[in-house]
Each structure stands twice: as C-alpha cells, then as structure tokens.
C-alpha cells in the first residue's frame, strides 16, 4: 500500500511541484512581458502604421493565431535549427524556445485587445492633439495609447491568465516546469489523480496571484472616466 496523500505531498509531490513552479515562473514572466510589448507594438502598427507595415502585422497575427500553439512550440525547438541562412542556424535551448513561442503567440492575441482599445478612442482626440501641433506619433503615444491601454487591460489580463496555463506546453519540449514535473512524478508514483489534481491547485494559485496583480495595476492606472466599477 502506498503512503498517505499528505505524506506523499510533503515528501515528494510538494517539493517537486515547487521546483517546477519556479521553472514555470522563469518561462511565464518573460513571456508575459515580451508578449505585452509585442502586442502593444503590433496593435498600434495595425491601426496607425503605414499600409505595408499593417499588412505585415496582420499577417503575423493571422499566422500565430491561426496555428496550434503546440505546432509553434515544436517549430521553435525542433525545426528552427534546420533553417540555415547563410550557413548560420539558430538552436534554441528548451526554455528560450518556450519563451519565444509563448511571447509571439501571446503578442498576436494581445495586439487584438490593443487594437480594440485604440479603436474605442474617439478620433476627435487625435484631431485635437494634431491641432495642437503634435505629430501622429506623438498623438498616438501621449493621447490615444494611454487611454486605449486602460480600455484593453481587462482583455490583456485575460490573455495573461490564459498564458499561465498554456505555459504547460513547455513540458513537451523537455522543460521541467509544473506540468513536466507533475508528469514525471505521476509516471514514477502511479498516482495520476492525486498528482494532477494537486497540479491544478498550483495553477489556480498562480492565476489567483496574477489576477490580484492585474487588479492592482488596473487600480493604479485608474482615473475618473476609466475606473473599474466598484460594487
């Protein structure tokens, strides 16, 4: 008969998942930041960029939203080394490959929220900014984007929550993050149900923390007219 759950948790499962949690954070943190940065840039370019740039940006979004993330993860890890340009090829380690996959995929989704936010700001405000002598770039960065970002934040937060969970796909390219570690422990202990239910609790914890941080950010950016309705 196997050890009781609590003992299994404190001796084997818990320490293993905590180690995996740190690896997950190493993957998720940069992916969130890069993804947001890409999303912001691409979103702005899709709305205000010159036509050829819009075309390229739209193509990027179609490609990365239109293919399964698993395929993208495999591409960056397994296929990229085979692409040689001038005899040079790039080989990514598992963690960087995971970060690149998640950041690019997340950026494609984030850009859509940013685009929606940008379009929700009345054109009159750009006109007013230009009437004061601002260039289009100044009008976008100091007038439209700060407002659009506030409007887009709930959606962007949604995407971040989603990213936390799809970071589990990193386990497929040998990253020993939460899901990777859990899979190994489950295989060795034959205690699938306990391991994966506990894994679920770990993700729930991560998402809860992230949601709290996003709330704080929303409150911090809150100005009259852009506040979160208080119940």
């Amino acid at each position: 008969m196997s050890t009781p759950y609590l003992e299994f948790l404190s001796t084997e499962l818990g320490p293993g998942l905590v180690a995996g949690l740190w690896t997950s954070l190493v993957v998720i943190g940069p992916s969130v930041l890069l993804g947001a940065l890409i999303g912001l840039t691409v979103g702005v370019l899709r709305v205000y960029g010159p036509v050829p740039v819009r075309f390229v940006a739209n193509g990027y979004v179609s490609l990365f939203r239109g293919t399964p993330l698993v395929v993208q993860v495999f591409f960056w890890y397994f296929a990229l080394p085979f692409i040689k340009i001038g005899g040079v090829s790039i080989v990514l380690d598992p963690i960087p490959a995971a970060i690149v996959s998640f950041a690019l995929c997340s950026g494609a989704y984030q850009s859509e929220y940013i685009r929606g936010g940008l379009n929700s700001i009345k054109r009159g405000q750009i006109r007013a900014a230009m009437a004061l002598g601002m260039t289009t770039r100044q009008a976008v960065t100091s007038v439209v984007l700060p407002q659009a970002f506030r409007r887009a934040l709930p959606g962007c937060g949604n995407e971040i929550v989603y990213l936390i969970k799809y970071s589990s796909l990193a386990s497929l390219i040998t990253v020993n993050e939460l899901t990777g570690t859990a899979t190994t422990i489950a295989k060795n202990s034959w205690r699938n149900i306990e391991v994966f239910c506990t894994l679920g609790v770990f993700y729930l914890f991560l998402v809860t923390v992230a949601t709290g941080l996003l709330r704080l950010l929303e409150d911090w950016l809150s100005v009259p007219g852009f506040e979160r309705p208080k119940s």
Partner: peptide
C-alpha cells in the same frame, strides 16, 4: 492656429492641468 471643437475633445485620461500642459511639454 488654435482650434476649438464642438465636442471639446479633451484628453480623457489627463487632468485639466495636464490637458493644457501636455502639448507645451511634447510640442513646445
């Protein structure tokens, strides 16, 4: 050439002070 619009077009995320100040800092 100053322009005043029918629907004001104030920058909604900025205080009255910043609405006046932003172009002074960014443009001038």
């Amino acid at each position: 050439v100053g322009m005043i619009f029918q629907d004001f077009n104030l920058f909604d995320h900025l205080s009255a002070l910043d609405n006046v100040r932003v172009a002074l800092m960014k443009v001038r």
